[in-house]
Nucleic acid binder design. Structure first.
Lengths: 347, 347
DNA sequence: CTGTTAGCGCTTTCAG
DNA sequence: CTGAAAGCGCTAACAG
């Protein structure tokens, strides 16, 4: 049973009265084939839309020219942009990508990885779920020789190439920006995960406070559950109520993730707080709709496309055996602050 | 060269002192294998994490258990939701999906399709680019036996299963909603494409006007270029300026696509028009951020996830030979209107 | 320079 | 009930 109805090497061989291997070599531009034969083969192949069978080639070569990508979700602007970057880098090197979603669940993430591995991918790009604590399965695959690159959400538990945003700097800049605009009591809303993405951002926030001589107040840090949207909303609502009920209540909030940033804005509006008069807001997110919001939302923008692209390039380099460099590298691409009305200066 | 380090049938055969074909049959639960042998094989396979090699299986069976998906872009909330649905349906039937982006370019779209076909996909799910006029390549592949299902953006030029939103009804409802809320001069902003998605929405708009005894004014229809974001923004800005400069200027705008809806809101804000006092707004889009906007944007919501899911199920049914039903089917899933402040009643 | 052959891992007759 | 063998389309060693 032939795939599609496509022409095979055999068809060309028969038509041209040559052997299969001659055709194969001609198409692979082998030096041991004569110029005119080569031309004849190439012409025939082009004319009849020959394209090599991925399966056969993959089987023979022991690789599939496909890479697995594991993300928490497709329906998220930052991730869509990263996937776009991954997609670009991959197709450039003619790799296919197989995308899987963990939905922030450790269990589902393992299932994705297993499926990808079983499916014979040549390597895996992964941005771990918030929930994941145990990375031993991933490590075992790595030990078994599977190239793995981490992107966006990085972890220390696994030693490989990593590509993410400079979260410390992004958080530092955002906090600093609030301080420079006259805000003093700055709350930080983040997520309860062991991923460095959370601690890096928290540390950036703390450092900015310290550098400005503002004491860090632990009661201004709230960590929300991220696995379930409903739970997240609940946690956020509670956090905001808690903040606004404090004696010395915050005059600004710095939010750590896309979801938290936008939902926080909605909730503040819903509860009737004026932004930035009652409380200012700046947060991580890449949505183009920040300008359309009420009020326009100040954001920390991540180079999502570039993160994806760079991570994919790294992985492909690993797959293709360029494991030459002794050590693994962690790359942090710069974020940048986009100031809008939600963090307007009160000075 | 073996894929990964995975165990093969041969490994199991050697270990158990059986033949390869016995193992194969045992794993496929063939009736011609004894119960205890079967058990022994299954146990060993499980213990050693055996999983069949996709490439080999695909080569043998002449199919790849993968489906190609062509969309205009990844970075779009409606599409992300559709992909999510496609993904769910596909993984349930253990098909992999290969996603390609046309970026609204006819040329790039052809390239995507060619790549997918060459890559040996078992079928193609496609939502055509706005720009595409010539569908002959797709038709020729279909004639060659490749199953194709259209989703989201449907066209008449190709005869197959199609799954989309009920765009006529969505547009009708949106326009009717504006009329019911006291708006009389309703403009319609859409795109210049031959895709039925545009004409259906236009017709729904016209029908709602007719049913309410309002005369259709052609000067209130503007069609924007959609291929290039910059061009779109320009066209939109011009259209709005044009509308607002009219003697009998519109008191409401109904926008036909995700991009147009959100950008239109931004532009109106930027130009200083009050929504809905100066001009009301309702438009197609699925963004969760409608509530966060200034003002909260009334939307026509498409069942994007379901469209993707249903389309994928149809395609897989076709692939698996259930082409039994004589005719092809076009399914229109219902949209629903989400009323927010941007189209508040002026009565 | 061109052809023959073996084999990647799997399914599937066909024999035993 | 189990095994041997062919072949899916391709590459690569080895002959000629």
């Amino acid at each position: 049973m032939r795939m599609n109805n496509s022409v095979t090497l055999r068809d060309i061989a028969k038509a041209l009265n040559l052997s299969i291997s001659t055709i194969s070599k001609a198409l692979n531009d082998s030096h041991e084939i004569g110029a005119e034969t080569k031309q004849k083969v190439l012409d025939y192949a082009k004319k009849h839309h020959y394209s090599p069978n991925r399966m056969a080639k993959g089987l023979k070569e022991g690789k599939s020219r496909s890479i697995g990508v594991v993300v928490c979700s497709l329906d998220n602007n930052v991730i869509a942009q990263m996937l776009d970057g991954i997609h670009k880098a991959s197709t450039e090197k003619s790799y296919q990508i197989i995308i899987m979603q963990s939905k922030e669940s450790e269990k589902q993430e393992s299932a994705c990885i297993e499926l990808l591995y079983a499916g014979g991918v040549d390597g895996i790009l992964i941005s771990p779920a918030y929930e994941t604590i145990n990375f031993s399965y991933l490590v075992s695959l790595q030990d078994a020789g599977l190239p793995i690159v981490l992107f966006d959400r990085l972890i220390d538990q696994i030693n490989t190439h990593k590509v993410g945003a400079d979260n410390f700097k992004g958080a530092y800049d955002a906090t600093r920006h609030l301080i420079d605009n006259g805000y003093k009591n700055i709350a930080h809303l983040n997520t309860n995960t062991i991923l460095s993405i959370a601690t890096d951002r928290l540390n950036g926030y703390k450092q900015a406070l310290a550098d400005s001589g503002i004491k860090y107040r632990p009661e201004l840090l709230r960590s929300c559950n991220y696995t379930d949207t409903n739970k997240l909303n609940e946690d956020l609502e509670q956090a905001i109520k808690y903040y606004m009920g404090l004696k010395d209540r915050p005059d600004a909030i710095f939010t750590a993730t896309d979801q938290i940033s936008t939902r926080c804005l909605m909730l503040l509006n819903k509860m009737g707080y004026k932004i930035p008069e009652d409380v200012a807001l700046i947060g991580f997110t890449n949505t183009e709709l920040a300008d359309a919001m009420n009020p326009p939302l100040s954001t920390v923008h991540q180079p999502a496309f570039e993160i994806g692209q760079f991570a994919a390039e790294k992985l492909i380099a690993m797959i293709e055996g360029k494991r030459l460099d002794e050590g693994y590298e962690t790359v942090m691409l710069p974020t940048n602050i986009k100031v809008r009305a939600s963090s307007q200066s009160r000075i």
